[in-house]
Design a binder for these strands. Structure first.
Length: 293
DNA sequence: ACAATATCCTGCGAGC
DNA sequence: TGCTCGCAGGATATTG
């Protein structure tokens, strides 16, 4: 599931592929139009996207933003199983299949529900098994002024995001630390995987509430979070589930994944069996010994 | 004003 | 073998 490192990997991949090309959208195809939330009408969306040039691709939290000509922006959120692929596909019956070696053969790359055709002959495809991804076309000015965009918390990996700012951001909430880390209005980019991994590294119990955390614990969480996200970006993200990079390839975070989906395995630090418990509607993985308090 | 719950989806694995 | 059932989850909407 794409979190900050995965979205960053996708954005870097798209920039590598498109930077020197100044590509332009020439058409859009979709067989699941509900993915497109704005404008709701697919024909309007198509008309809006046609002939627009891609001027810049960046991310804000887990959102991918394509800045387009005429002051428009395309916003894509991959949600749980969505991932953007860059290459060339051919139609086979009701499905699209990648041509040549453009996209790595992989089951999860075969759920193409949205295709953008570019004037360089290539395509940007959204493969999304569970169909939760969102795509929106905005006037750039309106997107940047929207409540959804302005309610997003700070970027954790920004140099200017100091420990003091982290503490200040968290102090707005009183709930369980894991839930607060995943709240996109507090800080952006963290989801179920990296909240579990960072708290294990920091040796802090995910159920512990914000007011009960010591300054030392907050420091450890801040350092662990930044470190684990940075390391995951270097490894091109986590591909345990459906996430793949723009070439359809897996990331390597598995090498340093310590607790997420490791229930029943031994803790790499102390050998205690990793537990899984629910926090809200999400599964939380932790070491009951290392993260006791 | 806040927190808990339902909603969207579909492949997969467990159980019979 | 083949069926059903429950589970996974980010963000938003709705209910308590």
């Amino acid at each position: 599931m794409p979190e900050l490192p995965e979205v960053e990997t996708t954005v870097r991949g798209l920039n590598r592929a498109l930077n020197s090309l100044s590509a332009r959208f020439i058409d859009v195809w979709a067989d699941w139009k509900k993915t497109i939330k704005k404008p709701r009408n697919f024909k309007s969306f198509k008309a809006g996207i046609k002939k627009k040039k891609i001027e810049k691709i960046w991310r804000r939290g887990k959102n991918i933003i394509f800045e387009l000509s005429d002051n428009y922006s395309l916003l894509i959120h991959q949600k749980l199983t969505g991932h953007l692929l860059y290459g060339y596909w051919v139609r086979r019956g009701n499905n699209w299949q990648p041509s040549g070696n453009d996209i790595l053969a992989d089951r999860v790359n075969n759920y193409i529900h949205l295709l953008f055709f570019l004037d360089n002959g290539k395509m940007i495809a959204l493969s999304d098994l569970r169909k939760f991804a969102n795509v929106e076309l905005w006037k750039t000015e309106e997107l940047l002024a929207s409540s959804g965009f302005n309610n997003l918390g700070p970027e954790i990996l920004e140099k200017s995001f100091t420990f003091e700012k982290f503490k200040e951001a968290l102090s707005k909430k009183k709930g369980k630390i894991k839930e607060v880390l995943m709240n996109q209005s507090v800080i952006v980019g963290v989801g179920n995987i990296y909240s579990d991994e960072a708290l294990w590294r920091a040796q802090v119990n995910p159920f512990k509430k914000i007011p009960d955390l010591t300054n030392r614990e907050l420091e450890k969480i801040y350092d662990s979070l930044r470190d684990v996200l940075q390391k995951s970006i270097e490894l091109h993200g986590e591909s345990f589930s459906d996430y793949r990079d723009t070439n359809g390839e897996k990331g390597g975070f598995d090498k340093i994944r310590m607790v997420y989906r490791r229930k029943g395995e031994k803790c790499q630090c102390c050998g205690t069996i990793i537990k899984r418990k629910k926090i809200g509607s999400r599964s939380c993985h932790f070491c009951p010994a290392c993260q006791k308090i």
